[in-house]
């Protein structure tokens, strides 16, 4: 790998790590189910970028794109299901604040 690409790769990795930090922070700190999902979405964006970057760096653009297409389809389906779950949780509690979501003990 030539040094220029390597430096660019390093910067990409740094930004991806920062995106991960934002996403995890959002899920941990948020008191709102929808916002927790948005945090997860940010994590998935970071992963998408990482996969495409990996494909670009080692000349597997086609493979990386094929993977990302499948990944996007999965992401959509999961978000639809998650949206349904959030709506029902709201119906029962009239709130989407997880602190008021009953007594699941873990």
């Amino acid at each position: 790998m030539n040094p220029d690409t390597f430096e660019l790769f390093r910067y990409f990795i740094i930004f991806i790590i920062l995106l991960f930090i934002s996403g995890v922070y959002c899920v941990l700190v948020s008191f709102n189910l929808v916002r927790a999902l948005i945090g997860v979405e940010i994590l998935i964006k970071a992963v998408t970028l990482l996969i495409i970057l990996a494909g670009y760096i080692c000349d597997r653009v086609a493979l990386a794109q094929a993977i990302v297409l499948t990944l996007i389809v999965i992401e959509i389906v999961i978000m639809v299901v998650a949206g349904g779950v959030v709506l029902w949780a709201f119906k029962y509690n009239k709130t989407i604040d997880p602190r008021r979501l009953s007594n699941l003990r873990g």
Binding site: V27, L101, L104
Partner: peptide, 15 residues
């Protein structure tokens, strides 16, 4: 009610 909440917990951790 509880099943929905259990599902959400499982869903986020699974993600």
């Amino acid at each position: 009610k509880f099943a929905i909440e259990g599902t959400f917990k499982y869903l986020v951790l699974s993600m």
